[in-house]
């Protein structure tokens, strides 16, 4: 019984000390991440306010403008790879947001994305368009598949 008690005490003290050392080693990184998170949250709030004001002024001018781009990806794999694919598609399509609706060429969007092969890390991903909805909120649905290397 005494041995067990000693074992539990040594284990607990070791655990707490280990936790403390780990915390001391990584605390600068954790603090930096919290700081970046706060900065990004503030930036996001700032952008949202600017966007709201811009939308209000656009509505006063009665012009139909693309306000948002929604990408729906059907992908069976790691969610982080899916995020990378979404980022790449956003990169190609980012110019659409802010354009007047009558200037949007749906066929061009189709030709840009359909059958495109994206390089994500050291893997290649093939895209296939499912549908495109063009309105003030453009919706693009794609099927993404990783190309298996032989």
């Amino acid at each position: 019984m005494k041995t067990w008690g000693r074992f539990i005490a040594v284990f607990s003290i070791g655990f707490i000390l280990g936790l403390t050392v780990m915390n001391v080693v990584h605390m600068h990184t954790i603090d930096r991440l919290y700081r970046i998170q706060n900065q990004l949250t503030n930036q996001l709030l700032d952008r949202e306010i600017k966007l709201e004001r811009l939308t209000e002024s656009m509505e006063q001018q009665k012009a139909s403008i693309v306000k948002d781009l929604v990408i729906d990806i059907a992908f069976e794999g790691n969610p982080l790879v899916q995020d990378e694919i979404e980022k790449s598609i956003h990169f190609y399509m980012s110019d659409l947001v802010g354009m007047e609706l009558w200037r949007i060429d749906g066929e061009m969007i189709y030709k840009i994305l359909d059958d495109r092969i994206l390089d994500i890390g050291d893997r290649q991903v093939h895209l296939e368009i499912k549908y495109i909805v063009i309105s003030e909120k453009i919706s693009i649905a794609v099927i993404a598949k990783i190309i298996e290397k032989l």
């Binding site: 915390n23 605390m27 600068h28 954790i30 603090d31 919290y34 700081r35």
Partner: peptide
Amino acid sequence: ALVGHPPLK
């Protein structure tokens, strides 16, 4: 760190 606050601060 356990409750999600910046540890250093």
